[in-house]
Amino acid sequence: MRIDVSGLTKTYKGGARALDGLTLTVPTGMYGLLGSNGAGKTTFMRILAGLLRPTSGRVAIGGHDMATAEGRLAVQRTLGYLPQDLGVYPDLSARRFLDYIALLKGLHSRSARRRRIGELLEVVALSDVADRRLKGFSGGMLRRVGIAQALLADPRLLIVDEPTTGLDPEERIRFRTLLAQLAGDRTVLLSTHIVDDVAQTCRSLAVLAKGRLAFQGTVGDLVSHAYHRVWTVSTPGPAPVTGRVVSALPEGTGMRYRVVAAAPPDPRARPAEPTLEDGYLALMDG
């Protein structure tokens, strides 16, 4: 399900502009959306999910125009949405919560609903606690309930906003692997500020900065932004003053710094292989 966005602008009351003329095409498959906090990712996701109306611009999802009520309804019938600030009813069990959302998504057959909920509880490894009240669930377990509800109606479009925030490393890896497996012939739009999540799951991505499109292309294209701009410096002294320090590791009596800079930041600097994170930082630093 292809997403076509052109000239998308969203200005909130008070004049804060979250999106500023965003034009973007998202193909089928797993697609990453990177950006710092406040870059406009969540606003963009909420517009795609039909929760917010843009100030101007056009969004078409699978050919459906999101400016019309019919278009939004058609998209919402095929949409799975996991918001950044996921909330649940604490007094319901996971199974009952999923049953309620399934009903709202139009799964009216009780037997089909039960079967689907059972399958998804297995997928997210929550079968054992399915009848426990959600108020006793950890953050990771709630995230898994969130992904289960997003998958209830077998969506063609899956929008997940900062899904791994607050998860422990093991949960995070399991979660992003699950998302990648789900992609297949679906469109999975993964919004995050954790570069590694995109590096491990997406072939294509876009980068937002201050509501504008800063980059659109493959992971390799973004990494190439940092070619000949990544350096390691081992020094007993202070960190290099030029460039952006990506990491600092204690090494013997000194430190080894990884730096993104246009020129060697220190006479002792050695070139290093860039990663997606380096490419992202190089892009952001211009």
Binding site: A49, Q76, P83, L86, G87, Y89, L104, G106, G146, Q149
Partner: peptide
Amino acid sequence: RDRVLRVDGILDATPSGRTAR
């Protein structure tokens, strides 16, 4: 309650209408 519990985002993204809900 839906807004306080932050469930409204999930509910509004379903094809069920707000008025009906």
